[in-house]
Amino acid sequence: MERQLVLLLLATVCLRIASSSESYIVVAPKTVRPGATVKISVTTFRAISDVDVRAEVVARGVVRTSARKTVAPNAADFIELQMPEQLPTENGEYSLVVAGSGGLTFRNETTLTVDQKCVSVFIQTDKGIYKPGQTVMMRFVAYKPTLLPYSGKIEVSISDSSKNLMAKWKDVQLVNGVASSDFPLSIEPPVGVWTTVGVWTISVSGDVSGKMLIVSYTVVL
């Protein structure tokens, strides 16, 4: 008996269901992020009984995370996969494997894209325009994709309108996702748009697995 799989990745849709055959639809994101929860939709058609569905993320033959769910015949359900906090690229290519057994037997594997942005950093200043001799007050707020605060360390640097490095702070410790700092301007600073950059890194065995630059602009008059 012909069994068909329809795998929907992001906006790509391909749907073909034979009226006389057992079928199913799997919907999953093409891109995943470290620490995020991935929802996979599974729908069964004309299954003879409950279908035991297992989803797993595999890299170099090693299962990095997995979950399973029993889906009723002619019904839809979700499987939630909790991604690891680190998905280093040295593990090789990541794949999503979805397999069913029981009332419907199938197996499908597709390649995943890993987006290493697992922290969003927001940089705030106390105002947008500064005059010579004033102090720039800054606050850094960092969140994970789950909206939980990121309590690691970030590196912050300030460059003037000519992209000259004016100040740099290493290993700024975030407490409950928040840290603050200040930078006094000289009496005769370069006029123009200044740039504040925040960098976060996550290390696995000494290797950087993720880095993100977040930029805010300050006008000095």
Score class of each variant (00 low, 15 high):
Val178Ile: 15
Glu188Ser: 12
Ser23Lys: 03
Ser181Pro: 08
Glu109Gln: 15
Pro29Thr: 05
Arg16Gln: 14
Tyr130His: 03
Gln173Arg: 11
Glu155Gln: 10
Gln116Ile: 12
Leu7Pro: 01
Ala142Asp: 00
Ile187Leu: 13
Lys127Pro: 05
Ala36Arg: 00
Thr37Leu: 09
Tyr217Met: 09
Ser120Asn: 10
Asp160Phe: 04
Ser216Trp: 02
Thr37Asn: 12
Arg64Pro: 11
Asn164His: 13
Leu185Ser: 04
Pro145Gly: 02
Leu112Pro: 00
Glu85Pro: 09
Thr110Phe: 07
Pro34Gln: 02
Asn108His: 10
Leu5His: 11
Gly192Met: 03
Val197Lys: 04
Ser49Tyr: 07
Val38Pro: 01
Glu155Ser: 15
Thr31Lys: 05
Leu15Asp: 11
Arg33Ile: 06
Thr201Ala: 12
Thr110Asp: 05
Gly35Trp: 00
Val6Lys: 09
Val97Phe: 08
Cys14Phe: 15
Ser181Gln: 11
Leu5Val: 11
Leu213Glu: 15
Phe183Arg: 03
Ser186Lys: 07
Asp160Cys: 07
Pro190Asn: 06
Val97Tyr: 05
Val32Ile: 08
Gln134Val: 06
Cys14Lys: 15
Ala67Gln: 05
Lys144Pro: 00
Pro88Tyr: 03
Val172Phe: 02
Ala59Met: 06
Leu81Met: 06
Pro88Trp: 02
Gln4Ala: 12
